[in-house]
Design a binder for these strands. Structure first.
Length: 597
RNA sequence: GGUCCUGUAGUUCAAUGGAUAGAACAAGUGUUUCCUAAACACUAGAUCCGGGUUCGAUUCCCGGCGGGACUACCA
């Protein structure tokens, strides 16, 4: 039983005995004492003053006295208005520190997978262009949430649905065929996804030129866009693809293959991975047959022009198209099919989609449609919706070339980390391999932390210059603290100073130190909360707090020179504990922490 | 028009309904015989507006105003 719940029942008991009042557990609020006040934990006594018929101060005083008489953990208390501040005994904190220190998996669930199977879809790229900054947020959030849910006892299947078919890839294919001169990743030296993306841009330019020309001949913009030769050829290509035209299929396989090679490198650099990849080309037919089934069930209806619609006006939404008049499927159709296949493949207890908030409506509809089709899990799917990433100059627009490319950005972050550590002479004693590994961890850590510390729902501004900062609430600041602690511990080992279980409960530790232990004891509940709320930001900000507190206390403190061996041992144990929490916590964010830097 | 998200220092971000709304960046000044100064300390500045619920509201509810997304026979 943890301290909070012990105290909660104690307070309930106190209130009952003192005032003959049966408090509900939710009325008893235990919180960390604010830094400016003396004490470790605070009981809010406002809810009891009515029943007690006492002033808040008197009630606090009485409850405090009761607690101190009936419990050895509490050593002292003070009352300010309706707040009863409790001091927890030092020996309690020492005992807790021993417990935490002895558990290398501290903060993560002891039994893996006992809560069921959670499938988490994230990334979900189109194959016509490389990944950009927006995908980075998606990938980092998806991966981190998966790690956090694992730590909370879920079995997790990470999945990716690749949009490998459709008009977009046909545009790239057509442009490559017409203007590519047989260029390949090998011949051009371009990464595969970048090469295919290049031809997507080529298409767009040529297409624009065509529509402009048509408009100059007096055609309306809408008409011109529809009848430009290039777009018509692309549509024909899509049709040929659906009809299994061997030549088109061959080109499609080749170009998608290039893209996958490129994506693999990006994913690897970013440190994310998947357990199962679905391809839309393999799932979209399933969606069509599900929609047909819906028509037979009478939950969808077919119009005279043979297109199929779902009427969602009863749910306060509009009507939604599911199959076009020509029988081809739309995005929604495919998602229905993919969902069904997934549930056939895995015994899923919870399905999570990590997809941007521009698709909130889509998932609202998907949930209802699956429910209408009779899937009992339809209603309970989770759309983990996150906000857009904007640049200081505004939104990213591919047309205006303001998109930040994922590969370039990662490379830039690593280079900056390299330059900074060179300037500071930090890595002079390291081998080239070590340097490489460290600057990579730091550069990527900086990027990842910057993105994950923000509430996912909010749109965020990414400033490439400011993000490459190594001070303040940043990844490198946390990594640095970890490295520094490790350095002290190495030194201790060299000096032959051992430290294990703390035996002497009588040593005098300061308020600050017991506060640090207290913060450390809060780690598991933070992990749990982050799981419940799907919030990596919670963990990020907790670790920053911990690190900041630790630095304030130890920045000029010579642990190894401490004369009293018991105190020295305590500080080493505390430091190592904090290093472990940093490592575990950052691990949940997908961020590596170096042993030295 | 409709649905959903969002509004906190100059900027980027915090705050289970609780105490004097926290950090960081940016500016200035200090602190290294020491384990790593990529650090630490000190100095100013903010809850969009109006109601309601409550002992108590940045938080919950209602109404404005501002920002964003969606509302495609695109994916």
């Amino acid at each position: 039983m943890n301290l909070e719940s012990t105290l909660t029942s104690l307070v309930a008991e106190a209130v009952k005995n003192l005032y003959n009042f049966e408090a509900e557990l939710s009325q008893i609020q235990i919180q960390k004492t604010k830094k400016e006040f003396s004490g470790d934990l605070t009981v809010v006594t406002f809810p009891f003053v009515k029943a007690a018929r006492k002033s808040p101060e008197q009630a606090g005083q009485q409850i405090g006295e009761y607690l101190i008489q009936n419990n050895r953990i509490i050593s002292d208390f003070n009352v300010i208005k309706g707040f009863l501040n409790l001091n927890i005994s030092k020996s309690y904190w020492l005992a807790r520190l021993n417990e935490i220190h002895a558990n290398p998996a501290y903060g993560t669930a002891s039994e893996a997978g006992n809560r069921g199977l959670m499938m988490i879809e994230y990334s979900s790229p189109n194959t016509n262009k490389p990944l950009h900054l927006g995908h980075i947020r998606n990938n980092l959030l998806g991966f981190s949430i998966a790690e956090i849910q694992k730590a909370n006892g879920w079995e997790v299947v990470k999945t990716n649905i690749v949009n490998d078919r459709g008009i977009h890839i046909c545009k790239s294919m057509l442009a490559w065929k017409l203007f590519g001169n047989g260029e390949t990743p090998q011949s051009s030296g371009l990464k595969g996804d970048h090469l295919v993306g290049k031809y997507y841009v080529v298409f767009d330019k040529a297409y624009k030129a065509e529509t402009k020309e048509l408009m100059e001949k007096g055609m309306s913009e809408e008409e011109a866009k529809k009848s430009a030769p290039l777009i018509m050829q692309a549509q024909q290509m899509l049709l040929a693809w659906e009809n299994n035209d061997p030549e088109v299929r061959q080109l499609w396989e080749t170009m998608n293959g290039w893209v996958y090679e490129g994506f693999d490198k990006t994913y690897k650099q970013l440190g994310v991975d998947f357990d199962k990849i679905y391809y839309e080309s393999e799932t979209y037919l399933e969606g069509k047959s599900e929609v047909e089934r819906g028509v037979e069930l009478g939950v969808f209806n077919r119009r005279p022009d043979t297109s199929v619609w779902a009427d969602l006006t009863a749910e306060g939404l509009d009507e939604k198209l599911l199959l076009r008049a020509d029988g081809t499927s739309v995005y929604m159709t495919q998602d229905i099919g993919t969902a069904k296949l997934r549930y056939n493949d895995y015994p899923i207890n919870k399905m999570v989609y990590v997809v941007g908030n521009e698709q909130n409506y889509h998932f609202q509809v998907l949930s209802i449609l699956l429910d209408k089709l009779g899937f009992e899990w339809g209603k309970s799917l989770v759309h983990f919706s996150y906000g857009m990433v904007e640049l200081p100059e505004g939104k990213m627009k591919s047309r205006e070339g303001t998109v930040v490319d994922a590969d370039d950005l990662m490379e830039e972050m690593i280079e900056t980390a390299r330059e900074t550590s060179q300037e500071l002479g930090k890595l002079d004693n390291c081998t080239p391999e070590e340097v490489e590994a460290i600057v990579r961890m730091v550069g990527l850590g900086s990027l990842k932390y910057f993105i994950l510390k923000v509430d996912p729902r909010k749109n965020m501004t990414f400033n490439p210059k400011e993000s490459i900062d190594f001070n303040g609430n940043t990844g490198p600041f946390i990594q640095y603290t970890h490295a520094r602690i490790k350095s002290v511990l190495r030194k201790a080992a060299e000096m032959g100073i051992g430290f294990g279980k703390l035996e002497n409960p009588a040593i005098d530790i300061s308020e600050k130190e017991s506060y640090l232990v207290q913060l450390a004891t809060g780690f598991p509940s933070i992990v749990r909360e982050a799981g419940d709320e799907f919030s990596p930001a919670l963990i990020a900000n907790y670790i920053y707090d911990l690190v900041k507190e630790y630095n304030q206390f130890y920045h000029d403190f010579s642990i190894l020179k401490e004369e009293n061996p018991d105190v020295r041992q305590f500080r080493l144990v505390l430091s190592e504990t904090i290093a472990t929490i940093i490592k575990t916590g950052m691990g949940l964010l997908g961020i590596d922490v170096p042993e030295r830097m």
